[in-house]
């Protein structure tokens, strides 16, 4: 075996060879996140300025392929972990990654509260509408009627609409994109410019268990179609256009930023955290 390359200071690659299925859309997400990070480094940020948190599922393998500090945590607990890191060191740029099972099933309570707390971190949900790594069970966003071994009678419930949930919960940045490198790069930059919690859902069809690549041709860009992202009512209307059920020729899937509004962050509202940010310190630096 060839000797593995040791991680140098600003090296963001790890020596691990990805184990996603060949052709998986997660490769697009990985490429987009890496190039976005390199761009951030070019603009002066360092690797140490970032922390990465992932859950459990196919999406979480991204932790092994990006050499950033952070934690590959438990299923469903990405958001409280991101919150803890951000409070522990408010100067870090925290990036959270979840799957749709992670974010919308086991972690749903945290999703509502992440919007409420509005800590300044960015949250990417790889939505492939299926529990892929445990072999094809439905998640809360799988279409009604979906059949697998655990649901031979078909799923009886309508999918939830995470965009509407995030809008209702008061999230200050609500976006959906398709798993394409250029789209990741665009939304990463927009999310970084936004101060506060950013919710980004990435439609990432599972090519093995939920192969809806037709999605891509059904998408249209909100920002290119006169959407007013400061208008909450309009955001809800756009969110209603796609209900995550099976698509047909009439389906239109809006992508882009549904809603954006800057609100006070948790770090700004507690004097202890505000001071840490001003002094560019973490709790670790406080000697008592």
């Amino acid at each position: 075996m060839k000797e593995k390359k040791e991680n140098t200071n600003q090296e963001i690659n790890t020596p691990i060879i990805p184990t996603w299925c060949p052709g998986c859309f997660n490769f697009q997400i990985l490429a987009g996140i890496k190039s976005s990070l390199l761009k951030q480094f070019e603009q002066g940020k360092k690797k140490e300025d970032f922390a990465i948190v992932t859950g459990i599922g196919c999406h979480a393998k991204i932790f092994d392929y990006i050499n950033l500090n952070g934690i590959n945590t438990l299923h469903g607990r990405v958001l409280p972990t991101c919150l803890g890191i951000k409070i522990g060191n408010p100067n870090l740029n925290v990036l959270g990654f979840s799957g749709d099972g992670d974010a919308y099933a086991e972690g749903m309570e945290h999703l509502i509260y992440a919007a409420r707390y509005n800590a300044d971190f960015k949250y990417f949900v790889h939505n492939n509408q299926v529990f892929a790594l445990t072999i094809a069970q439905p998640t809360p966003v799988t279409e009604k009627g979906y059949i697998d071994k655990t649901n031979p009678l078909g799923v009886k419930f309508n999918p939830i609409n995470p965009i509407k949930i995030m809008l209702s919960a008061g999230a200050g940045f609500v976006a959906r994109i398709f798993a394409e490198k250029s789209q990741i790069e665009w939304i990463f930059e927009e999310a970084m410019k936004h101060k506060g919690f950013a919710f980004i859902e990435i439609l990432q069809p599972c090519i093995i268990f939920h192969n809806d690549q037709g999605y891509k041709n059904r998408t249209y860009n909100l920002q290119e179609n006169n959407h007013d992202k400061t208008n909450l009512k309009q955001a809800f209307e756009k969110a209603e256009e796609f209900d995550y059920n099976i698509i047909n020729e009439k389906t239109k899937i809006p992508i882009g930023i549904f809603y954006q509004e800057e609100k006070p962050t948790i770090e700004e509202q507690y004097p202890q955290l505000k001071k840490l940010k001003e002094d560019k310190k973490s709790w670790k630096d406080i000697q008592r």
Binding site: T73, I85, G88, E109, H110, Y113, Q272, L273, K284
Partner: peptide, 25 residues
């Protein structure tokens, strides 16, 4: 100069605690 937060559940409490603890707090 410490911080106290009441969170949404005990599950959130320990996971937020883990996030903070690994930063050195």
């Amino acid at each position: 100069n410490h911080l106290v937060l009441e969170l949404e559940s005990e599950i959130a409490v320990i996971n937020t605690g883990i996030g903070s603890a690994i930063t050195g707090a």
